[in-house]
């Protein structure tokens, strides 16, 4: 009944397991697609405000600022906002499971807890990303016009979204899993999330940051979690994509080890008292 002992077949069975988790999460999230369309009103307002601000800035500075034209700057913002707004509330879900006892349900099944959640949140995020890119893209096109897009790069960009999602997942999941020790993780999440936004280039590309801050950002993971993929969306290059993937892979190892370590320590001391 259980998986065959042949290693290759076993690998595919495990891969299909998590792929199915992602697919089901995507279908479940699709049930809320109209709610998600409504929630994009916030994105439209943000884009409108920034278009006005950047128009004034570009009028004063010239047609190109640090390699970005006005449409490119707005499309960059659309991409960073889509990455951030599509990311589910991982910390809150994990905290709720640890505190509320749903962890018992998860641990009674033959899958890796973190693997299950990565796949679940990826499925949810893909629906949100599609909605955000659609609404953000239409808004940007109406306000500032299109930018050249290299369609041959689309599969690479999709792959980069998966790795970006994984990096963000492990980063925030590590915060959520601190619920094994602390009463509330919301404060910690706010701190870690804002750090990521500021140093990751959420509102403007990091090329526009002062030199000292940019040098610091180069040593940190945050640019690879938000700004890096958005820069490639606007200015795609194969070398840039390879460089980003390499950096993401390195940071994935670090975040993956930290998150798994926290999970393993935490699950040993889990206190699911009562039913």
């Amino acid at each position: 009944m259980t998986a065959s002992a042949v290693p290759g077949r076993r690998f595919w069975r495990i891969a299909r397991k998590y792929a199915e988790v992602g697919r089901i999460a995507l279908r479940s999230s699709w049930a809320y697609v109209w709610n998600q369309l409504l929630s994009t009103l916030f994105l439209v307002v943000v884009l409108y405000v920034f278009v006005q601000l950047w128009r004034v800035t570009f009028a004063a500075q010239g047609a190109v600022i640090d390699g970005y034209t006005l449409p490119e700057m707005i499309w960059y913002l659309v991409t960073t906002e889509a990455i951030i707004l599509s990311f589910p509330r991982v910390h809150a879900v994990l905290e709720q499971e640890v505190k509320g006892g749903d962890l018992a349900l998860r641990l009674s099944k033959p899958y890796a807890y973190l693997g299950f959640h990565y796949a679940t949140f990826l499925g949810e995020a893909l629906v949100k990303l599609a909605v955000m890119m659609l609404v953000g893209g239409v808004t940007a096109r109406l306000m500032v016009g299109p930018i050249p897009f290299r369609w041959e790069a689309a599969p690479v960009l999709l792959l980069l979204y998966f790795t970006t999602h994984a990096l963000n997942f492990f980063y925030i999941a590590a915060v959520g899993l601190l619920a094994f020790w602390v009463e509330e993780v919301i404060g910690l999440h706010l701190l870690f999330d804002k750090l990521k936004w500021i140093l990751g280039g959420m509102l403007i590309p990091v090329q526009l940051y002062p030199d000292a801050v940019r040098r610091l950002v180069d040593w940190l993971p945050f640019r690879h979690m938000i700004g890096g993929p958005a820069e490639l969306f606007v200015h795609f290059s194969w070398a840039g994509a390879a460089d980003l993937l390499l950096h993401q892979a390195l940071w994935l190892i670090v975040f993956g080890l930290v998150c798994t370590g926290i999970y393993r320590l935490g699950v040993r001391r889990v206190d699911l008292n009562g039913g």
């Binding site: 998986a3 397991k17 089901i24 279908r27 049930a31 099944k109 033959p110 899958y111």
Partner: peptide, 15 residues
């Protein structure tokens, strides 16, 4: 989702 989807998912989870 309908139960059939959960059943399909569990079939994959239990390989």
């Amino acid at each position: 989702l309908p139960p059939v989807d959960t059943f399909n998912l569990l079939a994959r989870i239990y390989e």
